[in-house]
């Protein structure tokens, strides 16, 4: 549905997007993940045709974004970052205005506005001025505006930024309801948000895709980094010596806390060292307070790889 090839975007001397290629099949929900300034918004803006890429090609539903700009725009519902709206308009007025821009006739507008207001939970505030709405409600108006013309492609730039946990859940549920009907590309810098709903996650940093796949695939990519945390009543030096001697252990970090030694053991790839570690502690006669298998979360993975990217000194500052 969305096909991007070798996208490059320079802002003057700053490289914001560096040779990005991806393909999003129809009906998928794809999460675009990255730290602030990674080039997410820039990429989304290029997909919507708001910004032309310095190099590369984008097609949406087989149409070129630049050459068939008008046709492509009609297929996309776009929620820009920070949800810009006209504060002096009422929600109803704004949605009618958007509808007219998308060439919807009056009948279709009235019907669709009822639908999207219902769906986005705006029915009771429809006559209110946008400028007087709460952050959450503004976000809903933005979403309603993007959904209004029932576009096959939805591009949502940080749809949950600045919302409270309740509202985030609401937005997430809304996006889940849209699954199947629309191809959805959403960006965020909060990982758990996309982990739950996205079919595919693309992690970008420094304008490049650094990892992509389904959340499960990404999780299995990090699983090998799982660590074991053991707390025993013993001296730190002795513990790291004893645990370090266990088969399959790569690294032991120890720290003392109120008389207990906390050891974080990193096993070699694919080794399950829990049993051996327990045995080592028992044979030394140490008391065990805690033993936990710490499977690395996607979050850590995300932090790891994006940190690696920015350490590599790739262009940091974009929009």
């Amino acid at each position: 549905m969305i096909d991007a090839q070798n996208l490059v975007k320079w802002y003057g001397p700053t490289l914001a997007v560096d040779d990005l290629s991806f393909n999003i099949p129809r009906g998928q929900i794809v999460g675009f993940l990255g730290p602030n300034g990674a080039g997410k918004s820039t990429t989304l803006r290029m997909l919507t045709g708001f910004l032309p890429p310095t190099a590369g090609r984008i097609s949406v539903d087989g149409l070129d974004v630049l050459a068939d700009s008008q046709a492509v725009r009609a297929k996309i519902g776009y929620l820009p970052e920070n949800t810009p709206l006209y504060p002096e308009m009422r929600i109803d007025e704004y949605l009618h205005y958007r509808g007219r821009l998308y060439r919807m006739d009056r009948y279709a507008r009235v019907q669709r506005i009822d639908e999207v207001c219902d769906r986005c939970g705006l029915s009771v505030v429809r006559r209110r001025l946008i400028g007087q709405l709460s952050r959450g409600n503004k976000q809903r108006v933005g979403l309603a505006g993007a959904l209004l013309h029932d576009p096959p492609v939805l591009i949502l730039d940080e749809p949950t930024a600045g919302l409270d946990p309740n509202q985030i859940t609401h937005v997430r549920r809304l996006i889940e309801e849209l699954r199947g009907k629309h191809t959805i590309l959403l960006s965020t810098h909060i990982l758990p948000e996309v982990e739950k709903i996205a079919d595919k996650v693309m992690i970008i940093a420094g304008g490049k895709i650094v990892a992509q796949g389904s959340p499960d695939e990404l999780r299995s990519a990090v699983a090998s980094d799982a660590r074991i945390l053991v707390e025993v009543k013993a001296d730190a030096a002795k513990v790291s010596q004893a645990f370090g001697g266990v088969d399959g252990v790569k690294e032991v970090e120890t720290s003392m806390r109120d008389g207990w030694c906390r050891a974080v053991v990193t096993p070699k790839d694919g080794c399950d060292t829990r049993e051996a570690l327990g045995g080592a502690a028992l044979s030394s006669g140490w008391l065990i307070r805690e033993m936990r298998h710490e499977s690395a979360s996607l979050e850590q993975y995300f932090i790891q790889i994006t940190a690696r990217q920015s350490q590599a000194g790739v262009a940091e500052d974009t929009l």
């Binding site: 725009r73 920070n82 810009p84 006209y86 821009l101 998308y102």
Partner: peptide
């Protein structure tokens, strides 16, 4: 200034 240019210029208008 307000950013509303983005939804405006991504709507199907020239």
């Amino acid at each position: 200034r307000s950013g509303t240019v983005e939804p405006l210029l991504t709507a199907p208008v020239t």
